[in-house]
Amino acid sequence: SPISQSQFIPLGEILCLAISAMNSARKPVTQEALMEHLTTCFPGVPTPSQEILRHTLNTLVRERKIYPTPDGYFIVTP
């Protein structure tokens, strides 16, 4: 029987999409709110552990794709 394939999207890209959507909705993007958003909006995607989430967010900050503030994470705009 054929095996169904799913699209692979890197966690960093999913986080950027989620942060962008939450920023547009003016929702604060904390790590907890981000986990909740991922569970709700990406039900088929396994939720990352806190450690993996933190590591991926730090990587995105180093890559200058997002930036942290006391009010949460935001997408870097050119």
Results as ranks from 00 to 15, higher is better:
residue 32 E to C: 04
residue 72 G to P: 01
residue 9 I to A: 12
residue 10 P to S: 08
residue 18 A to I: 02
residue 62 R to G: 12
residue 72 G to M: 03
residue 22 M to Y: 03
residue 73 Y to N: 14
residue 51 E to D: 14
residue 51 E to W: 05
residue 66 I to H: 00
residue 26 R to N: 13
residue 44 G to C: 09
residue 43 P to I: 07
residue 18 A to G: 07
residue 19 I to G: 00
residue 72 G to F: 01
residue 64 R to V: 03
residue 4 S to A: 07
residue 78 P to V: 04
residue 68 P to A: 15
residue 4 S to V: 09
residue 59 T to E: 14
residue 22 M to S: 02
residue 16 C to H: 08
residue 56 T to G: 09
residue 34 L to P: 00
residue 41 C to A: 13
residue 69 T to Q: 10
residue 48 P to E: 01
residue 25 A to E: 09
residue 50 Q to R: 10
residue 78 P to S: 10
residue 70 P to V: 13
residue 2 P to S: 12
residue 15 L to N: 01
residue 56 T to M: 15
residue 67 Y to A: 14
residue 41 C to Q: 02
residue 14 I to K: 10
residue 3 I to C: 04
residue 48 P to G: 02
residue 12 G to D: 05
residue 48 P to R: 01
residue 31 Q to Y: 09
residue 6 S to Y: 04
residue 39 T to I: 14
residue 44 G to L: 07
residue 50 Q to H: 11
residue 2 P to E: 04
residue 78 P to N: 03
residue 35 M to L: 09
residue 24 S to N: 15
residue 26 R to P: 04
residue 15 L to F: 06
residue 59 T to D: 11
residue 34 L to T: 01
residue 51 E to G: 06
residue 73 Y to G: 06
residue 39 T to M: 06
residue 72 G to W: 01
residue 8 F to P: 07
residue 8 F to W: 11
residue 19 I to P: 00
residue 14 I to M: 13
residue 45 V to T: 10
residue 49 S to N: 04
residue 73 Y to V: 04
residue 1 S to R: 02
residue 64 R to G: 14
residue 64 R to E: 15
residue 30 T to K: 07
residue 19 I to A: 02
residue 78 P to C: 15
residue 37 H to I: 01
residue 17 L to M: 10
residue 25 A to M: 09
residue 68 P to R: 12
residue 14 I to G: 07
residue 60 L to H: 01
residue 24 S to R: 11
residue 30 T to C: 11
residue 32 E to A: 12
residue 58 N to A: 14
residue 31 Q to E: 13
residue 73 Y to E: 07
residue 37 H to V: 01
residue 31 Q to M: 09
residue 49 S to H: 03
residue 10 P to N: 15
residue 68 P to S: 15
residue 39 T to V: 15
residue 37 H to C: 03
residue 78 P to K: 07
residue 71 D to N: 11
residue 6 S to T: 07
residue 27 K to G: 05
residue 22 M to T: 01
residue 45 V to D: 04
residue 77 T to F: 08
residue 5 Q to F: 06
residue 14 I to Q: 06
residue 11 L to W: 01
residue 33 A to H: 13
residue 74 F to M: 15
residue 31 Q to P: 13
residue 38 L to P: 00
residue 8 F to Y: 02
residue 63 E to C: 09
residue 60 L to V: 01
residue 33 A to F: 03
residue 27 K to M: 06
residue 8 F to T: 07
residue 9 I to Y: 07
residue 1 S to M: 03
residue 63 E to Q: 14
residue 1 S to P: 01
residue 28 P to G: 05
residue 58 N to R: 11
residue 59 T to M: 11
